[in-house]
């Protein structure tokens, strides 16, 4: 998925990424970390956030299917202005 808009954003890159995920129709997101604004947007969009994956993308998908990933119940890192 193209996330160039987020990369170039002066602020709100997480919001932008969450929008893109929501637009894609995804039901869950596997990520390294999730900041407070992205988490708020993803949760509002009904998207579950999972962390703790390792290896390739297909391995991460397997880990998710196997229930080996941890579901985040809040942002995993603080915002830049916190």
């Amino acid at each position: 998925m193209d996330n160039a808009g987020g990369v170039e954003a002066v602020q709100g890159a997480g919001v932008q990424a969450a929008e893109a995920v929501s637009r894609s129709g995804a039901e869950c997101l596997v990520t390294g970390h999730c900041g407070p604004k992205a988490y708020r947007a993803l949760t509002a969009a009904g998207i579950a956030v999972y962390t703790g994956a390792s290896g390739t993308i297909s391995e991460a998908v397997e880990q998710l299917r196997a229930g080996a990933l941890e579901r985040a119940n809040g942002p995993t890192v603080a915002g830049h202005w916190a």
Binding site: A9, Q11, G12, V15, A18, E19, S22, K37, A44, A45
Partner: peptide
């Protein structure tokens, strides 16, 4: 400034942005 997120099921305003 990405202060408004358009999501599949609603819209979210980030006032601080």
């Amino acid at each position: 400034y990405n202060a408004i997120a358009i999501l599949s099921n609603g819209l979210l305003v980030f006032k601080e942005l």
